[in-house]
Design a protein around this nucleic acid. Sequence first.
DNA 1: GGCAGTAGTTGTTTTTCACAATTAAAAAGT
DNA 2: ACTTTTTAATTGTGAAAAACAACTACTGCC
Lengths: 167, 167
Amino acid sequence: MSDTPDKPDHVTEPFTVAGLRIDVLDEAFSWYIRSIDTVVSRDLDQRTAHLDVAKGKGKITTLLLVDGYPGIRPSQIAEVLMRDRPATGRIIDHLVKAGDIRRESDEDDQRAQSLFITEKGSALAQEVRDIIRTQENDFFDFIPPEDRQEFMRVLKRAYINMRNKLK
Amino acid sequence: MSDTPDKPDHVTEPFTVAGLRIDVLDEAFSWYIRSIDTVVSRDLDQRTAHLDVAKGKGKITTLLLVDGYPGIRPSQIAEVLMRDRPATGRIIDHLVKAGDIRRESDEDDQRAQSLFITEKGSALAQEVRDIIRTQENDFFDFIPPEDRQEFMRVLKRAYINMRNKLK
DNA sequence: GGCAGTAGTTGTTTTTCACAATTAAAAAGT
DNA sequence: ACTTTTTAATTGTGAAAAACAACTACTGCC
């Protein structure tokens, strides 16, 4: 049962992390995605620590969406974030309290809300854009230009693929 | 300063998410990484919900490391996880309490610990390996085989790059 | 022997995350 | 016209996870 742990010695490149191989994980896309996420997210938290959008996932996307689509509704944001509505609602709460966006109730549909950016939020959005760009450079500039498009293409397909699975 | 927001109209494909463009984010690697992570992690939580390694990042890696490297020390695990020692220590606590690994104090260094897998942990590790492989198939099988190596190569480089930045 | 550095633990605080239940409005069926 | 079903969003809640700081114990060097 708990027999011989067969070493996969047919694997060409024995990739090691800090000198260690990590079993199935070192050929698992998900492991790298998750590890990179850890670092990128932590780094982003630090870069945005002084801003209203600091911490957690979703605030930045929400802010930029509201900036780009005046009158956008919470449910649309939730769909992009792939989060449930309670989570999305709280992100919106946060940004409303901070004065970066404001809520209005939708003209056509009294249940729904329309979200709009404020001046403060607009300035914040610009600051955030700069931070994102800087971080992209810091972390991903090692990717040779000719590889970038391909890498992005695969990432986008992975993302789309996952969205479809959620339905 | 905060002048004209120049539309990058030289970008060939105006990629949209749920019919929306997401500003700088839709050309940001980090955004896709973070989004994909959200889904992959949530999915993994569900798949492992009935196991001791459910929830959060690090338990699975820890388990497999201990399985692969009998006598490994917590600090080595922390380095792979890119987490601080308190976080790593708690993951170890959790697995020890669950009876999947056990601690011994290192022969040579009384401060340090050596970790070992138990029989229960060994069985769990096997189960986890299967889950990881299944998830990889479910989420990433859309990547044509010829693109996989390249995608993995970039991910690994990104990961290594980030580890080095942490030092 | 004293001091600096390393290994790990404990404590604490803040936040997140996901699920369930509720209110309210619109749309659809009869 | 009136009931039922769906949709939009909020509130409540409980369990955790992540990051920091402070602490104990041991090693190894001058």
